[in-house]
């Protein structure tokens, strides 16, 4: 047995707590700032305890129509981001589960070619084909549309690979049994495969939701109109003005509102998320 070392364990706790303080501090600080008045924020150092303007600032940001973001309210930006994140997460899961199903449970000419065509897209992130992709979006008239924000990000090799890997572990006897019982491909998919994939789908959903919510380059290129912008881009536009006329207290509120939904998703779905993350990438 390893000797039971209470001192070592105490040091471990101390280091972990310091680590958590470092990790949490920027978020906590922003939260504190979001409850102060503009004057208090502009006069550092800021107090380490939340101020008394929580309701005032949050209702001003949510319902007062923060005119700073080109006349578009925070609610609209949050809605756009939610549509984008949900669209990408659900869309990606749907199309990749279908293509993984085709690749694993059917034999047809060109199967491996298609698999490689999907696999290679891992090596073509948006960043390496920015301009030509932008041009295609303009040609298709998809600028400033939800379709434009969601559709091009829906094809994902990683999700397809994950489902493929999982499907390959499903014993052939199960397929055989289903076929003997007269189940067709659709029945098998709906009644056997989907229920078995539940955990994988949940894990992927968390990862993809966050992927969609935190996108930056894509919405930056795809949206010109402020009312189609996402919250992250809107926030960037809010702080891009000269320091003098930025309403920092409302910026801080917007910041908290922008990071809260994905944090809630991660913390609430932690179990699936952690498993999915560690298994997906391996």
């Amino acid at each position: 047995m390893i000797q039971n070392n209470p001192v070592g364990r105490l040091i471990a706790h101390v280091i972990l707590i310091i680590g958590i303080l470092i990790v949490a501090f920027p978020i906590y600080y922003t939260f504190v700032a979001s409850t102060q008045t503009l004057q208090e924020i502009l006069r550092p150092p800021l107090s380490l305890l939340p101020g008394g303007h929580f309701w005032e600032n949050y209702s001003a940001a949510l319902f007062g129509g923060v005119g700073r973001i080109g006349g578009v309210g925070v609610d609209r930006l949050l809605f756009n981001t939610l549509v984008m994140a949900l669209g990408i997460a659900i869309g990606k899961i749907c199309i990749s589960i279908l293509s993984a199903y085709a690749i694993v449970f059917f034999r047809f000419p060109g199967r491996m070619v298609f698999f490689w065509l999907i696999f290679i897209t891992l090596m073509l992130p948006v960043e390496v084909r920015i301009l030509p992709t932008y041009k295609i979006m303009v040609d298709l008239g998809l600028i400033d549309t939800y379709t434009g924000l969601i559709l091009p990000l829906m094809a994902s090799a990683t999700a397809t690979l994950l489902f493929r890997q999982f499907f390959m572990t499903i014993p052939g006897e199960l397929v055989e049994a289903a076929r003997v019982d007269g189940a067709g491909p659709w029945r098998f998919f709906k009644d056997i495969l989907l229920p078995l994939s539940k955990t994988n789908i949940a894990a992927l959903f968390v990862i993809l939701f966050i992927y969609g919510w935190t996108q930056y380059l894509w919405p930056l290129l795809m949206t010109n109109r402020n009312d189609m912008s996402t919250i992250v881009i809107g926030l960037r536009k809010m702080i891009s003005f000269a320091d003098a006329d930025t309403e920092w207290h409302l910026v801080m509120v917007t910041c908290i509102l922008a990071i809260l939904p994905p944090i809630v998703v991660v913390v609430l779905m932690q179990r699936w998320f952690v498993r999915g993350l560690v298994e997906t990438e391996k």
Partner: peptide
């Protein structure tokens, strides 16, 4: 320790 994962890089 896991929540910064959910924060967008830009934020």
């Amino acid at each position: 320790l896991i929540w910064p994962y959910a924060v967008a890089p830009a934020i």
